[in-house]
């Protein structure tokens, strides 16, 4: 069996960034006013209630604060959040 040479640790970060960018796997967000937010490449909803939603995407954790928050899921990797947002925070 030929031994596969591991990728040098120095290249891992830039390579991941390159692949993420080229294959459109980064977090793509479209926000309209403070009432409508479309997020693509959502991996998981970590926490959810009508004032706070915490999402994990491919490279970020997004926290949305607001009122009357609702989630629309149309079956793809993206979700649509409606409501009245007061703040959006990002965490790497």
């Amino acid at each position: 069996m030929p031994k596969i040479k591991p990728i040098n640790e120095n290249y891992k970060g830039p390579l991941k960034k390159f692949i993420t960018r080229k294959f459109y796997l980064n977090t793509h967000m479209t926000i309209t006013d403070n009432t409508h937010l479309e997020i693509e490449n959502v991996q998981n909803i970590v926490e959810y209630n009508d004032v706070y939603i915490k999402l994990k995407t491919s490279n970020l954790t997004v926290m949305i604060w607001g009122e009357n928050l609702s989630v629309n899921d149309y079956g793809a990797d993206g979700i649509v959040i409606n409501g009245e947002f007061s703040s959006i925070e990002f965490e790497r």
Partner: peptide, 18 residues
């Protein structure tokens, strides 16, 4: 949260989840 995540992984198209 878990329920929504399972919905997302399935073929169900759910809307206005609140």
């Amino acid at each position: 949260e878990e329920f929504i995540n399972t919905i997302r992984k399935s073929s169900v198209s759910a809307r206005n989840l609140r």
